Amino acid sequence: MQFDPEFFTESLFSPSAPFLRGLMMTVAVSVISMTLALFVGLLVAMMARSRFFALRTVAGLYVWILRGTPLLVQLVLLYMGFSAAGIFAFETVSIAGISIAGAVQAAVVALTLNESAYVAEIVRSGLETIPKGQVEASQILGMTAISTMRWVILPQAIRTMVPPLGNTFNQLMKNTSILSVIGVQEMFLMTQSISSATFRTFEIFCVAALYYLLLTTIWTVIQWYIERHYNHKVGLPYEIPLVSSTVRVLRSGRAGLARSPREETPKEVLTP
C-alpha cells in the first residue's frame, strides 16, 4: 500500500472529530496531572526535609517505590489490580455536569503519583541550593517556617527548578500515550482507531507524531519564557538555547575557516 498524501494532508490540517477529542483529552490529562503532581511533590519534598524521622522515611519510601517501578505497571495495578483484588474500583462520576470515566480518573491518579515522585526530588534539590544562613537570618527576624519558605527560599529556588520541571512535564505529555492500555480515549488510542478503520497506519501515525511534537514544542516555548522571566529578575542573561547555540556553532565554524594554522598557534610557541 502506497503513501496517500491526500489523506495525510487532510488528517494533518483538518483532523477528524475523534482525533481532536483525543488531543483534548491528552492536553487535559497532562495539565491536570502535572498541576496535582506539583502540590503532592512539594508536600513530599517538605516531608523529606522534615526533622522528624518518620516523615523522612515515608517520603523516601514514596520516592523510591514510584521512581523504581514503571508507570505502565503502576497504571494497570491501580486501575485493574485494585479492582480485581476488591480493594478499590474507579467508577464513572459526574462533576459539574461533566461525566468522568473511571479510566480517566485512574490515569490522572497514576500520572500524578508517578510525576510527584520526580517533582519531589527536583524541589528537594532546588531547596538545598539555598544557603542555610538565609534560613537562620529569617528566624532571627522572627519569620515562621512557612513565611521563610514562602518569601525567602521558594522565590530563589524556583529559578533552578523550572528547567527540570519543564522537562518532566514534556515527558508526562508523551507518557499519556500508554493510557490507551486501560481504555482512555486520548490521542494515541484514537489514532489506533482511525488506523483500524482506514488502514492508513503510516499516514495517521505520522500525523499523531507531528501533533505530539507540536504539543512539546509549544510547551518548550512557554518554558523558555518562564525561564527568561526568572533569569531577568535576578539579572542573568537569557536567550533561546537552541537558536543561540546553533548561531555560535556556525560563527565559530566560519571563524575557524578564516584563520590560518599559523594564526591559531599560540604566540608563546612562535616567540623564540
Rank of each mutant, 00 (worst) to 15 (best):
F3W: 08
D4V: 11
P5V: 06
E6V: 00
F7A: 02
F8K: 03
L12N: 13
L12I: 14
S14V: 12
P15N: 03
S16G: 08
M25H: 03
V27H: 00
A28I: 03
S30V: 03
S30G: 08
I32V: 12
M34W: 03
L36M: 00
A37E: 05
A37I: 12
L38I: 07
L38Q: 07
F39P: 01
A48L: 09
R49I: 11
A54I: 14
R56F: 09
T57I: 12
V58L: 10
A59Y: 05
G60I: 09
Y62Q: 10
L66G: 00
P70E: 00
P70T: 02
L71K: 12
L72D: 09
L77E: 06
Y79P: 00
S83E: 04
S83F: 01
G86F: 05
I87H: 06
F88N: 05
T92K: 11
G97E: 12
A103W: 09
A103S: 14
A110F: 00
L111P: 08
L113G: 01
E115C: 01
A117H: 01
Y118Q: 05
I122P: 04
R124C: 07
R124L: 11
E128P: 00
K132M: 10
V135Q: 14
V135N: 14
A137I: 07
A137S: 08
W151D: 07
V152C: 05
V152H: 04
I153K: 06
Q156F: 09
A157H: 03
I158L: 03
T160K: 14
P164N: 07
T168E: 10
F169T: 04
L172E: 00
K174P: 05
N175C: 15
T176L: 06
S180T: 13
V181Q: 01
V181G: 02
V184G: 13
Q185D: 04
E186F: 07
M187D: 15
F188W: 01
L189F: 06
L189N: 02
M190Q: 13
T191I: 10
T191P: 04
T191D: 06
Q192N: 15
S193D: 02
A197C: 15
T198G: 08
T201R: 07
E203N: 01
F205G: 01
F205W: 00
C206F: 14
A208G: 02
A208M: 03
A209D: 12
L210E: 02
L214D: 01
L215D: 02
T216S: 07
I218K: 03
T220A: 07
V221M: 14
I222F: 04
Q223H: 10
W224C: 15
I226L: 11
I226H: 05
I226S: 06
E227T: 13
R228H: 12
R228F: 12
H229Q: 15
Y230H: 03
H232Q: 15
K233I: 14
I240C: 01
P241W: 13
V243F: 13
V247L: 13
V249T: 12
S252P: 13
A255I: 05
A255Y: 11
A255K: 13
L257Q: 11
R259G: 06
R262A: 13
R262E: 09
E263M: 09
E263F: 11
T265N: 12
V269S: 06
